[in-house]
Design a protein around this nucleic acid. Structure first.
Lengths: 236, 236
DNA sequence: CGGTACGTTGAGTCATATCAACCATAGTGG
DNA sequence: CCACTATGGTTGATATGACTCAACGTACCG
């Protein structure tokens, strides 16, 4: 968490680039945030906060990737979502005024800004446009959670794994050679799908046999997106 | 949907009784809502709105019970939540400005007020306190959705059924004889738990054998709450 | 009286979890 | 430099939870 010579990113620039919700703020409000925020850096494996913590603010991600997860019985993680540049995390527990219901851990080294709760609350109170956007965000996430629930309850592991791969493609993109830009362990994949690590390994190698993907260690190459869509039953 | 002579409930009175979010509104705002709202009555089986619909407002429940669900492949329902007196439904799709991601169907005859989107949006813009409460609501629901996801992904059907029974106890209560106040079909129970109807039937009769519940058709009597808690693993 | 929706039970099957062994890699410390 | 350990990946064998299919009972309703 040493700062070296890395310049603290400016919210106005960052908001434009990342499309974070700060783009709805006035210049004055941006200045306040810039002043009040705390810039932090984390490396893979670091934990930003843990389930049960009372959190005194939220994080806006400037770069890197974070996984947000719940820990179930016997310590098994269930990954709820990922956060990348422009995303907020921990705002849920700030606004509902509850302890964190999730933990957040770094997947790819990241830079984040920590903004105290009071700032968020006062923005909501003085900038209705921003409040509305926050509501929109929360409601959108709620919709995604609902779909997730239905998927886990009704689809097979095979279908869900295909769907997760497609989700990762859309959320993080693929490079010129069709390689997924995020790199996750098999266990992390299992913790998104909601299954055992071994099942992910077996199914991935089936997908490989079926020429849907190519596997190079943690790097996954997407060969046949349509095929994965068919398996995942995403469209009706 | 005929109105007979039933008096339209007044929001101020209703808000106090039911504890709906309207309690955060000013007298003037209450008057506006009272004027703009549309009072409606529905009977068991009626559908308020369906997945994919564009909705032009949200519903505040005055009485009765509604199930909110998603329809998965092959038409199987996944119940996402229930709404009863004081609860809002459809506000998610109004605020995220997306088509409904769920359907809503009446479980117990109900009276609801329909409030146009514009009213909601203008309240958010003029009453920050109310906006904050709405955010709190949405964020709280998000937390519950996260728990639900983890449960479905990690717990067995047996554990989840026990948990659902406890949830129904806390959400709807039990009468003097320990009978659950909501009455659901086995299929509906299965659609909350995320399993097959037959599995619910089998497990319920196991619970009966173990003296945890008593079954009288659709009426379920809770005999041993502690036992159900133990099975459901709710506490760590 | 037949029809429809719901509940129940049994039997068979399959997907997935669990357990165990093993390999590869990288980092650590003596 | 080598043994040591930890972490992640892979594969096989086995067990079983839960689904599916099918038959049948029950109750209510027009």
């Amino acid at each position: 968490m040493k700062q070296h010579d890395i310049p603290v990113p400016l919210c106005n620039k960052c908001a434009l680039e990342s499309g974070s919700l700060f783009k709805h703020l006035s210049p004055d409000e941006i200045i306040t945030i810039n002043f009040e925020k705390d810039f932090r850096q984390y490396r893979r494996g670091d934990i930003l906060y843990q389930e049960g913590n009372r959190i005194s603010g939220f994080y806006c991600i400037h770069s890197g990737i974070i996984k947000v997860y719940k820990t179930g019985l016997d310590g098994k993680e269930q990954i709820i979502r990922f956060a990348k540049a422009g995303d907020y995390i921990a705002y849920r527990s700030v606004l509902s005024n509850e302890p964190a219901c999730t933990s957040a851990k770094v997947i790819e080294d990241c830079q984040v800004c920590f903004i105290p709760s009071e700032i968020l609350v006062s923005l909501i109170k003085t900038n209705p446009e921003y409040a509305l956007e926050l509501l929109k965000l929360a409601c959108h996430e709620l919709g995604e959670a609902n779909s997730f629930i239905t998927d886990i309850a009704q689809k097979t592991v095979r279908e869900r794994l295909a769907e997760v791969l497609l989700f990762l493609v859309h959320d993080f993109g693929i490079d010129e050679q069709q390689y997924l830009k995020v790199s996750l362990t098999r266990e992390e994949l299992a913790n998104i799908v909601g299954t055992a690590t071994e099942s992910v390994i077996r199914l991935l190698s089936e997908f490989k046999t079926d020429k849907l993907v190519e596997l190079n260690g943690r790097k996954i190459r997407i060969l046949n997106e349509r095929g994965l869509e068919k398996i995942s039953n995403v469209f009706s």
